[in-house]
Nucleic acid binder design. Structure first.
Lengths: 218, 218
DNA sequence: TACAGCTTGCTGGCTAACAAGCAAGTTGCA
DNA sequence: TGCAACTTGCTTGTTAGCCAGCAAGCTGTA
């Protein structure tokens, strides 16, 4: 764990107490363990020791395992939502053509997912019904992403359904290879770790999306 | 459970013993429970009672929970592989143009997944590292699907990589909406159960794929 | 044909491990 | 000193796996 900071007196506090820091450590550890092992297989004992606190501390701060799960999901999806909003603002400010923006969105989303394996794992597990259900937790990010796409493509209400399909396709294309990087990809001869796989994949996906909507913009 | 068959004497045997039938019942129950609840959350007691046998019987036939998991995966992927081979043969025999065949493949794959939620759940869980790892189990089906696509599109060796990306895209587009039908789809205003969602979605995916490869065949 | 002897299918009791949650105790800090 | 921030012991429940045993029914023999 992180080495304890030196107190003003210069002495090393052996058991420094810091509720905020402990909470965050627990959330971090739980996020990692829930995402990688799943709700059942990640015990509160594991979470505690990964967070550098005792077995009982996760329960002390979060009340129950189910509440800890919820807190992890909420923090994670809040981050995803913030990323969507940031991406939207960047796109709106850029004054580029929709094609260029879509390509950038695919690019950024790919990188975003690659940097956040925990988010991918958690959402995946939630979709599979792992852990207590909190069905509303992904809604805000989805709605905002959809609104951003609709606005960006200049679609009217009648075609927002088309935008939803397009968004779903983009997400599918970026998401699936992350989840199945160690199972399906090698089975068809692709190596997610190869030097230029990501670049190659991005190009392929951008190509599909742009050809797919060619002539249907505005 | 299935009603016991009538013995030659006409009497109903109370405890009909039938190893083959018990094995299949256990595999069926385990497939369902592993897929829906995950490896840890599905206990051997649950499997036994869902299969109409005692708590100890799954262990008797399969040795351990890990072995049962493997047996379930193997049966499931064997079925998937058979479906790939059947689809390939149908396509080869049809003499249709590649575009038509690709559209049919998307169509059939969509329906195949919709009819086999257990396969989807199991492969998803395997990708997430749930249960003991058997990394080789999906390989045969993937290889054969890839070979079929390459042959069908008339790609040479140099372009088999392109075919792999195309296959990956098709699978991603069909797969993701199945897994996230109750989470992501409603978040972007789509309803997987709506009357014509499937038709609409198929059309969208076929459109993407065909536009994406337009002018790159042969 | 009958029946002893054996195999095989299946059950359920037992155990050791480990889980979550609670409550009582301890320690550092304002 | 008082309270918040923890830890530790305990209870209760659940699990996988082992094992002894029972019963169905086959097989060889007379």
């Amino acid at each position: 764990m992180a080495s304890p900071s030196v107190s003003p007196s210069g002495r090393q506090p052996v058991n420094e107490r810091n509720a905020a820091r402990s909470r965050e450590s627990i959330l971090d550890a739980a996020e990692r363990l829930f995402a990688s092992r799943g709700y059942d297989a990640a015990s509160l004992t594991d979470v505690g020791s990964a967070a550098g606190v005792s077995r009982g501390t996760p329960g002390y701060f979060f009340g129950s395992k189910a509440e800890l799960w919820r807190a992890v999901l909420e923090r994670c999806f809040a981050e995803a939502r913030a990323a969507v909003l940031a991406g939207r603002d960047r796109a709106m400010a850029s004054n580029e053509k929709p094609e260029v923006i879509l390509a950038a969105v695919v690019n950024d989303y790919f990188d975003f997912l690659a940097e956040r394996p925990n988010l991918v794992g958690l959402m995946e597990r939630q979709a599979l019904g792992d852990g207590p259900e909190y069905p509303d937790v992904a809604r805000a990010a989805g709605q905002e992403a959809l609104a951003a796409i609709v606005a960006e493509l200049g679609f009217d209400d009648r075609r927002s359904r088309e935008a939803a399909h397009l968004l779903l396709s983009m997400v599918s294309l970026c998401w699936f290879p992350m989840v199945h990087a160690r199972t399906y990809l090698p089975a068809i001869g692709l190596d997610a770790d190869a030097k230029d796989f990501v670049k190659e994949r991005k190009a392929h996906v951008v190509g599909l999306i742009l050809h797919g909507i060619a002539g249907r913009l505005k």
